[in-house]
């Protein structure tokens, strides 16, 4: 294809997106669109898969059967969300194995928040309330993104995610209505998860390299700073209702703007964690790689069994 022809196709493509038309896997698309989507969708899928690990830690120690069933269902949803997203990503011409390889080798990233440890039961409450809360804010606009398979996966994810946040908030509420010690446990969890949750919505707009292109492709419909403000505005009253204090001395409602002003975020910490130096980066990747490698014989056995069954059927038929 000549350079002019590509330019022409690109113009038609951009116009389709501007008209809110969806792009489907077999449609022509610029290589950069394909690569950007592989990067974002896979990163999203990896986050769901790695996101199971901090919570899996508490399934066997949940304080009641009700809590255990809910947590188990939530973790199972995350596995499901990872699978929806991997499938969507594969429609762009990358194999599941390549995607896993990118995660395991560290080439692909996942949300940095899952590199923090879950040290008390209250962390299950804080994660559901804050981490899933921030995730929902990030994900709802993606239900309208331009790439069809991604948008469809996100519709399903968003429908299921709301229970995650509600069960988290209920855990916090129960702790806050409990003994002094339980309430302190809830406050401690909020103290530790608040700032990482704000960072989870991504670098500030002036430091975000992908925002402009992603906005054009509707891969992003609001900037990181807009999403962060929205998250803070809706979360602060929820903390008030729990009787907990947000660990930010600069947090203050601004009558003029109608939004909360907040203190500076420690971006050095964020970049340290992204670069692999968070408290649990190694532990998470080891757990993930072990699960994959130690499961290899099971995958092979299932495949060998399937092939044997097919051979038997063929022999019978002939």
């Amino acid at each position: 294809m000549s350079e002019n022809e590509v330019k022409n196709l690109e113009a038609i493509f951009e116009a389709r997106i501007a008209r809110d038309e969806k792009i489907e896997p077999k449609d022509w698309m610029p290589e950069k669109y394909r690569q950007t989507h592989i990067r974002q969708i896979s990163q999203h899928a990896h986050s769901e898969i790695v996101g199971m690990l901090p919570e899996g830690n508490w399934i066997t120690r949940a304080p009641s059967l009700r809590r255990k069933a809910a947590l188990l269902a939530k973790v199972q949803d995350e596995a499901g969300h990872g699978l929806y997203l991997y499938s969507a990503c594969e429609t762009l011409g990358i194999s599941r194995d390549e995607l896993y390889e990118q995660l395991h080798s560290g080439k692909a990233k996942y949300s940095s928040i899952f590199n923090y440890p879950t040290v008390t039961w209250a962390d299950m409450g804080a994660i559901g309330w804050l981490v899933d809360g921030a995730a929902i804010i990030n994900q709802v606009p993606l239900c309208n993104t331009s790439f069809g398979p991604y948008a469809r996966a996100m519709v399903r994810v968003c429908k299921e995610e709301s229970f995650h946040q509600r069960q988290g908030y209920e855990i916090m509420l129960t702790l806050c209505n409990g003994t002094q010690e339980q309430k302190e446990m809830a406050q401690d969890a909020l103290n530790r998860w608040w700032w990482p949750s704000l960072m989870m919505l991504g670098p500030t707009d002036d430091a975000s390299v992908h925002t402009e292109q992603s906005m054009k492709w509707k891969l992003k419909r609001k900037t990181n700073d807009e999403l962060r403000q929205q998250f803070i505005d809706q979360t602060v009253p929820q903390a008030d209702l729990l009787g907990l204090t947000i660990p930010d001395p600069d947090l203050k409602f601004n009558e003029e703007t109608g939004h909360y002003d907040f203190g500076p975020i420690d971006w050095d910490e964020f970049w340290q964690v992204v670069k692999g130096h968070g408290p649990c980066n190694k532990e998470r990747m080891n757990a993930r790689v072990n699960a994959w490698e130690e499961g290899a014989w099971v995958r092979d056995a299932a495949m060998a069994y399937a092939e044997k069954q097919t051979a038997k059927k063929v022999a019978k038929a002939s």
Partner: peptide, 30 residues
């Protein structure tokens, strides 16, 4: 000997009276 599980397409009828609709895909051995 690693051989990857093939890809399958999944269609679901949400209730009787409606057609099966494409829901997504997944990998499985058989």
């Amino acid at each position: 000997m690693t051989k990857n599980w093939p890809l399958w397409e999944v269609f679901v009828r949400s209730k009787n009276g409606l057609e099966h609709r494409h829901f997504g895909s997944l990998h499985a051995a058989d």
